[in-house]
Computed example of a mutant assay.
Amino acid sequence: MSETWKPVLSRSVVFRHDRVRGADLLVLPERVVVLQGNAGSIVRLCDGVRDVDAIVAELAERHPDAPLADEVPAFLGRLRKEGWLK
């Protein structure tokens, strides 16, 4: 994965917060993905402006002790492989 990649949701994917469930969701055609843990805070930063390093840096400010440098790029790579991020 290129570190200069600026992830953004694919056109067919909508990010929403479900107040009833108290969960962040990815709404796709004919499917809803419930994001677990802090996944929503990561996806929320995927605006097509920030690159992966900037996303990791912003999250590191909020969660200084978390192992973000490896986990966030891997997570974003999985979403990209699914076709949810471009």
Rank of each mutant, 00 (worst) to 15 (best):
M1F: 10
M1Q: 11
M1W: 03
E3P: 00
E3R: 14
K6H: 12
P7M: 08
V8S: 14
S10E: 10
R11N: 15
S12V: 01
V13P: 07
V14L: 10
V14M: 09
V14H: 11
D18R: 02
D18C: 13
D18P: 09
R19W: 13
R19M: 10
R21P: 06
G22Q: 03
A23W: 00
A23M: 12
D24E: 05
D24Q: 01
L25I: 04
L25W: 06
L26K: 04
L26M: 04
V27S: 02
P29Q: 13
E30K: 14
E30I: 00
R31S: 12
R31F: 02
R31Q: 15
R31D: 11
V32P: 05
V34G: 04
V34D: 04
V34S: 04
L35P: 07
Q36T: 09
Q36K: 11
N38G: 13
A39Y: 04
A39C: 07
G40L: 08
G40Q: 07
S41E: 15
S41K: 14
I42V: 14
C46Y: 07
C46D: 06
C46P: 04
D47F: 06
G48A: 12
G48Y: 11
G48W: 10
V49W: 09
D51P: 13
V52W: 04
V52L: 05
D53P: 03
D53R: 15
D53A: 15
I55Q: 01
I55C: 02
I55G: 03
I55S: 05
I55K: 02
V56L: 11
V56K: 08
V56H: 09
A57Y: 01
E58P: 01
L59D: 11
A60S: 15
A60Q: 14
A60L: 08
A60H: 10
R62Q: 14
H63C: 00
H63L: 14
P64E: 06
D65I: 01
A66P: 02
A66T: 09
A66M: 12
L68K: 06
A69G: 01
D70W: 05
D70V: 11
P73H: 05
P73G: 06
A74S: 13
F75L: 14
F75H: 09
L76T: 09
L76Y: 08
G77F: 03
R78E: 15
L79K: 04
L79T: 04
R80G: 11
R80M: 08
K81W: 10
E82Q: 12
G83K: 05
G83Q: 08
W84H: 09
W84I: 02
L85S: 02
L85Q: 02
K86E: 15
